[in-house]
């Protein structure tokens, strides 16, 4: 059945309003879109790393989650989820439960690229039937915009501030999606909420319903940390994919597919200019920053295209 956003939006919400995420937060969009990919009749258990999503959605005694939900700590969401999945298998085998459950973990880039990487790697390698969704907003936003290994080079964060002798973060963004591909798991995809959210929906569906471990990396901008007007989020993600800063692709059982190819690849400054965290790159004398960012993005993009051929 063809994807229809209007129809999808008429499904009962599994992540309810009333949560305390900021207006225009990318992670809320990601969560709602991923959960819409669940078949209505299927149950789910959601695991969540400590972070914005957790503190905003389950503040005792309120929860925004319609499905069962578990938060334990920052660095172990994947391991926690793998324990739930193992319990499901054991209890199902012993005839104690008969519902169909799906297991989805949400973590930010801090909880996924950094402190939770070991736990994630372990869960993926063991092949639990679960999906790990990283809502990547490229810094530790919950604690106040500190750099992570996902933060792009030159980004102005509170632990890589722009000063007299330092120009924001000095390292490039870690390529976590490729690290996950290297685990040889059945399904890995990178996406964001472009247009009518079809790409995100379809990848979520595949990730949830492909047996075994799956990983989704979803660029989920943070208006506070990236410093753009909240209402511009659609333009920001569009620029991210059209500048090839955030290519949308999937690796299905080892086979790469580019799922979105920009009609015309835009220069990276179109993306950088929308965000205050890169404002210093546009100061006179800092042209080299934009040039080097362009070179890096081009190299990454070319390497990806080669794999997709």
């Amino acid at each position: 059945m063809a994807y229809n956003l209007k129809q999808e939006l008429n499904k009962p919400e599994r992540f309810l309003g009333g949560h305390r995420l900021c207006a225009g937060c990318g992670c809320g969009i990601t969560v709602r879109a991923v959960l819409r990919a669940l078949k209505e009749e299927d149950r789910a258990v959601i695991a969540n790393a400590t972070g914005c999503l957790e503190v905003s959605s389950f503040m005792y005694p309120y929860t925004a989650w319609q499905d069962s939900y578990i938060h334990t700590a920052f660095e172990n969401a994947a391991a926690t989820c793998s324990g739930v999945e193992a319990a499901y298998n054991a209890l199902k085998r012993r005839g104690k439960i008969d519902d169909t459950y799906k297991f989805i973990t949400f973590g930010g880039d801090g909880g996924t690229y950094d402190i939770g990487l070991q736990s994630l790697s372990g869960a993926m390698e063991r092949g639990h039937d679960m999906v790990y969704v990283c809502y990547d907003n490229e810094a530790y936003m919950n604690t106040g915009i500190q750099r992570s290994s996902s933060t792009p080079r030159f980004s102005d964060s509170t632990t890589t501030p722009v000063g007299a002798v330092q120009q924001g973060k000095s390292q490039n963004k870690k390529n976590l999606t490729e690290i996950m591909v290297a685990h040889g798991i059945p399904y890995v995809a990178q996406t964001t909420f472009l247009g009518n959210l079809r790409d995100l929906h379809e990848k979520s569906r595949k990730a949830i319903y492909t047996p075994g471990a799956a990983f989704l990396n979803v660029l989920s901008p943070c208006p506070r940390g990236w410093r753009y007007p909240a209402e511009d989020i659609a333009a920001v993600v569009k620029a991210a994919v059209d500048c090839c800063v955030w290519p949308m692709f999937e690796v299905d059982h080892g086979v790469y597919h580019l799922t979105y190819e920009p009609r015309r690849k835009l220069p990276v400054e179109k993306y950088l200019r929308l965000q205050g965290r890169f404002a210093h790159c546009f100061k006179s004398g800092n042209e080299w920053m934009i040039e080097q960012t362009q070179q890096w993005v081009d190299a990454q993009w070319e390497a990806l295209l080669e794999k997709c051929e």
Partner: peptide, 10 residues
Amino acid sequence: STCIGAEAAG
């Protein structure tokens, strides 16, 4: 962590 997830799961 897996024990916590499993025990919480029932």
